[in-house]
């Protein structure tokens, strides 16, 4: 079973490659043009589509809160994960590597924090927690005492506790992301026009 460190490296590499790919694609679409792709009508359309896809992520938490007694919405959780990655990648295509105004920069930063914390939660923390529980069960099966188990698993438990931080960041930062995204959209419509 690969270690948590290996998992972190793989996840980091995939995230960086995905973001770089989106930015490179935007640069390719901007080649030879007087205006970068992100500042064209098609770039703006990519922003709208990215926003629509990103908003799909809220169906999962809303269903959990509206109907807590119902079975856990596994399907909508999958939609939450996919939309939470595809939507932001479309936003990177919309923005390109052109950052000037502070409001969209703040919206982008809060989006990155929400997305990265979610990826850490699902891809790294869940893996670390599962590894910790598997190791604890194995030691209990071998007859180790609770004190011995805690001593042996101290390092893994600390690691899991560190990755648990994603919980304190992911959902609350959504508030900041929504506020700055709204400001960016309203500001863009104010200065560039609605049509």
């Amino acid at each position: 079973m690969p270690s948590v460190q290996q998992r972190v490296l793989v996840v980091s590499a995939v995230v960086i490659a995905a973001v770089a790919g989106a930015l490179l694609f935007e640069a390719l679409l901007s080649l030879g043009e007087t205006t970068p792709f992100g500042h064209t009508r098609y770039g703006h359309a990519a922003g709208w589509v990215g926003l629509a896809v990103t908003l799909l992520v809220f169906v999962y938490p809303l269903r959990k809160r509206i109907s807590p007694a119902r079975r856990w919405p596994r399907g909508w959780f999958r939609v939450h994960m996919v939309a939470g990655v595809v939507g932001p990648l479309l936003i990177f295509l919309h923005s390109g590597a052109h950052y000037h105004a502070l409001v969209p920069i703040l919206a982008m930063l809060s989006m990155v924090i929400v997305v990265v914390s979610g990826i850490i939660g699902q891809a790294v923390h869940a893996f670390s927690l599962r590894a910790l529980n598997d190791q604890r069960r194995r030691l209990q099966h071998e007859g180790a005492s609770d004190g011995d188990i805690d001593a042996q698993l101290h390092g893994m438990a600390s690691q899991e506790e560190a990755f648990r931080m994603w919980q304190a960041i992911h959902a609350p930062m959504t508030l900041m992301f929504l506020v700055f995204t709204l400001l960016h959209v309203v500001g863009a419509l104010f200065f560039a026009g609605i049509s």
Binding site: R164, Q167, A168, I169, A171, P172, M173, L175, M176, V179, F180
Partner: peptide
């Protein structure tokens, strides 16, 4: 998972 810390949302709201 452990419950969300009670200060998380108010802190983010204040910073926002």
């Amino acid at each position: 998972y452990h419950p969300l810390p009670r200060t998380a949302v108010p802190v983010v709201a204040l910073v926002t």
